[in-house]
Amino acid sequence: MHPIVFDTVEVPVADRPAAWVETMALAEVTQRVKFLETARFNARMELMPLGVGQLSTLSYASLVAQRTPKLVRQSDPEMYHVAVATGGEIGIDQHRQSSLLRQGDMGFFDSSRPFDTQAGEAPGHALLFQFPKGLLRVPHERFTALCGLSRPWTHGVGRMFGQFLVELSEQYPHCTPHQAAGLGATAVDLLMAVLTQEDDAPGGREPSQQATFVKMSAFVTEHLADPHLGPEMLAAAHHISLRYLHRVFQHNGTTPRTFIREQRMGRCRRDLADPALRHLTINAIAGRWGYPHPAAFARSFRSATGMSATEYRTLHAAPAAQDT
């Protein structure tokens, strides 16, 4: 697979700002952009679809991009974004938290809330990983608490995550669509480990309880295909009471049934958007993730996404750069 490349050097100087705004809207989210050096503006983006997610390499300078409340209301793909800085400086601002990303830092965004990004005269370089919120097996609040902040990706699990994205961007041309989708899922799993590491830091949640949640999260992932998966099965497998089970999930901002439903729905969305799985029927995909009854799946899918599974699959048959 080859990345989809947009480079302003291929566009007339006068048309570069408008072309960049349009490309950003298609590849990421709609933003209002102010160009500080219009006459000398240059930018480059490489888009690498990963099933329902996407990895992009970005290089740009002399601009301020704003995702305003109005733009959020007009269109929200409900995606999480993680920027891994590889050079220069990029400023980020969300949830009244601000950071300056330099090489070795990573920053976090939520498409459903307003945010600002800035780059000065020196080009900022970054890898941007974006994916549907439902694929991340941690509570929404865990991710949004980091929005606008920076964290290093130079050591520990963060290094594994950042280096994985770097290697993925370099080896992407050698991947098949099915492999790319699987690698996107791996990136989400590594990010979950990064967020769990946040909890293990001083001031984080009580370690034994968090360890229990991580174990149960892994158990859920391994048993999503089992239609009997539920709170009772989880509690029995981990030799804990239902009361303690609910307490653990409550401390992580969710409930066992909600967590299981979100993980199942995330896998269904991923498979429905995977071009390598077009040969599978919608009912077959639903069945492989614990939905044996088509009517129940249809209701759940529409409730979660606002559209039918058929409409979702048709929508994601278009080029991935248009999905967001």
Rank of each mutant, 00 (worst) to 15 (best):
H2Y: 13
P3G: 02
A14E: 14
D15F: 11
D15E: 09
E22S: 14
E22P: 09
E28P: 05
V33G: 01
E46Y: 04
M48F: 04
G51S: 11
G53V: 07
S62G: 07
A65N: 02
K70P: 04
L71W: 10
P77S: 13
E78T: 11
Y80D: 13
A85C: 14
I90M: 15
D93I: 00
Q97H: 09
S98H: 08
L101E: 06
M106Q: 10
D116E: 12
L128P: 05
L135Y: 08
E141Y: 09
L146D: 05
L146G: 12
G148Y: 11
L149R: 14
P152E: 06
G156L: 05
R159L: 11
Q163F: 07
T176Y: 08
P177T: 02
A187M: 01
G204A: 05
G204K: 02
S208N: 11
A211T: 15
K215A: 14
T221Q: 15
H223K: 07
H228M: 06
F249I: 02
P256D: 01
P256W: 00
Q263G: 12
Q263F: 03
Q263M: 14
D271W: 07
L272C: 08
R278S: 10
L280N: 09
I285D: 01
P294I: 03
A296D: 13
F297N: 05
R299M: 06
T305C: 11
G306C: 07
E311C: 02
H316P: 04
H316D: 04
P319A: 12
T324R: 15
